[in-house]
Design a protein around this nucleic acid. Structure first.
Length: 505
DNA sequence: TTAGGGTTAG
């Protein structure tokens, strides 16, 4: 390549790296072609990067496929990462298979997207095998790689394994702590999540709590329903970030106050937020709905649409659930029919469940049954459970028996369904049938687990069973500190993973 | 020249 062409190539590389628009990238690409600079590994890699950055995966793949130099790891890593970042997990894994075919060994750039892809395709074996590779190839010391391993176990719902990885990590940073708090909170180990947060607060500057830590911490507080802790964390948020917070923190605050029964506080946070997103609207709609304020939820839904936000399936579930809790039958029916016609989604299992619940609560039991029998999605216990609950409420034995017998097939070990049917028979004085169901429960060895309440008193959570039983300390139940488990990483890997590692290397 | 984290329903 002569000096002029080299200069042109360098200029185009510089321009490509600063491209922020599709048209500019296309112009640079065209110029590269016209100037006779292609194929060239450096320029093609720059094109691959810019198309990936702009989310133009089809263009990126075309560039990748035309690259003649397949010995360079860099484009492979970029292609795998681009697919993973754009949720095209199967494509990422296919490129990785090809990568292996060419005899490459993954490096510390290759592995993080593979963990993401493993979670994306819901295949724990891939992540587990990659974990084996991390150990075998000695990448445990790279904090980004180690965090990806941790993220895999957190997102895959394997909290014990996540704790094990966390305990054995050679280096940690803010992302590590954020992931661990997230994992503990998602697993319902809320006290452990809070302990983890407090430990993080006591660390030095390198591990400083950042804006991404707080939604997970708040989420854990919400699951526990501990208002005292919520206020404590909210105080920390205001001291650190002021009142006008990042959308995700604001959304978590709205949600958590709603879950603790403080709708007024949810409203206050909502009013002070300047950066709203679709999740904000969905959360606030859901909060009003959960507090039985369906009319307000509908007004917010309308305002959201007027402000240009297009509801997603989660928003539609939230508004349907709000209608259901408030018995707003006409509005609920109208929204349900608009899911396909106005918003272009196929109604999901969740949408059907809300609709069956709404119809059942309002006494339209035959209509609910017809809806269940007509739907294309696969039926779930929740749907039939909603219908059965409506039958109990409205003392309808005919539909109730259909729902109960369907539930006996779907959930053979769930005593609640038998108890619900007994409730219908009892309310109608059908003594023989009541005795028959109770006898069946005895034969099957089914026992209804008594309901209980969780009460927070002076910062301690107590469990109060129904009936005249004294309260039990939470310590009786939550006496496990997961982070202090003596765990060895080797125990996380199955024989199959070891075998896969052996085959690979 | 490439890799990582948060919030919403049921």
């Amino acid at each position: 390549m002569n000096c002029t062409l080299l200069e042109t190539r360098k200029t185009l590389s510089f321009l490509l790296r600063s491209c922020t628009a599709h048209s500019a990238a296309l112009q640079c690409h065209a110029q590269s072609f016209v100037q006779g600079l292609l194929p060239n590994t450096v320029l093609q890699t720059d094109l691959l990067l810019v198309y990936s950055k702009l989310g133009l995966l089809h263009e990126a793949r075309k560039v990748f496929d035309r690259m003649l130099d397949r010995k360079n790891m860099y484009p492979w890593n970029v292609m795998i990462a681009s697919y993973a970042q754009n949720c095209m997990y199967s494509d990422a894994l296919m490129v990785f298979r090809e990568f292996k075919y060419f005899g490459f060994r993954p490096d510390h750039y290759t592995l993080p997207p593979l963990f993401k892809a493993s979670v994306g395709v819901d295949d724990g074996c891939i992540g587990s095998t990659c974990h084996g590779l991390v150990i075998r190839l000695g990448y445990e010391g790279y904090v980004v790689v180690a965090n990806s391993v941790l993220e895999f176990y957190v997102k895959y719902g394997a909290v014990l394994q996540a704790c094990c990885v966390f305990s054995n990590m050679l280096c940690r940073d803010t992302v590590t702590w954020n992931l661990m708090i997230l994992g503990l909170g998602r697993a319902g180990l809320c006290s452990d999540a809070m302990s983890c947060f407090r430990e993080m607060l006591s660390l030095d500057r390198m591990m400083r709590v950042d804006f991404m830590t707080l939604p997970s911490v708040l989420n854990a507080c919400g699951k526990e329903g501990d208002l005292l802790k919520v206020r404590e964390v909210h105080g920390y948020v205001v001291r650190s970030f002021g009142f006008d917070v990042d959308a995700a923190i604001g959304n978590a605050l709205i949600d958590v106050y709603g879950k603790c029964g403080c709708l007024k506080d949810s409203e206050k946070v909502f009013r002070t937020m300047s950066r709203l997103n679709l999740v904000t609207w969905t959360t606030v709609i859901s909060c009003y709905g959960a507090h039985g304020k369906g009319e307000e939820s509908l007004l917010l839904f309308k305002k959201m649409v007027d402000e240009g936000f297009r509801p997603n399936p989660v928003t539609l579930t939230a508004i349907l659930a709000s209608c259901s809790r408030s018995g707003l039958i006409d509005q609920g029916k109208q929204i349900f029919s608009s899911i396909r016609s106005d918003y272009g989604f196929e109604p999901s299992v969740e949408h059907y469940t809300c609709m069956v619940d709404l119809l059942s609560r309002c006494g339209y039991l035959l209509e609910a049954l017809q809806l269940l029998e007509s739907m294309k999605s696969s039926e779930t216990g929740s749907m039939w459970g909603a219908l059965l609950a409506g039958c109990v409420m409205h003392k309808n034995v005919e539909v109730g028996q259909i729902a109960a017998h369907r539930l006996f097939q779907l959930e053979p070990n769930n005593a609640s369904n038998y108890v619900a049917l007994c409730g219908i028979y009892q309310s109608l004085g059908m003594v023989d049938r009541l005795s028959s169901i109770r006898a069946k429960m005895r034969d099957l060895g089914l026992v209804k687990i008594p309901a209980c309440s969780w009460i927070n008193r002076a910062g301690r959570t107590h469990i109060r069973p129904r009936g005249p039983v004294s309260s039990t300390s939470s310590n009786d139940l939550q006496n496990t500190n997961y982070l202090n488990h003596d765990l060895r990483v080797e125990n996380l890997l199955h024989d199959d993973d070891t075998l896969a590692m052996g085959l690979y290397l």
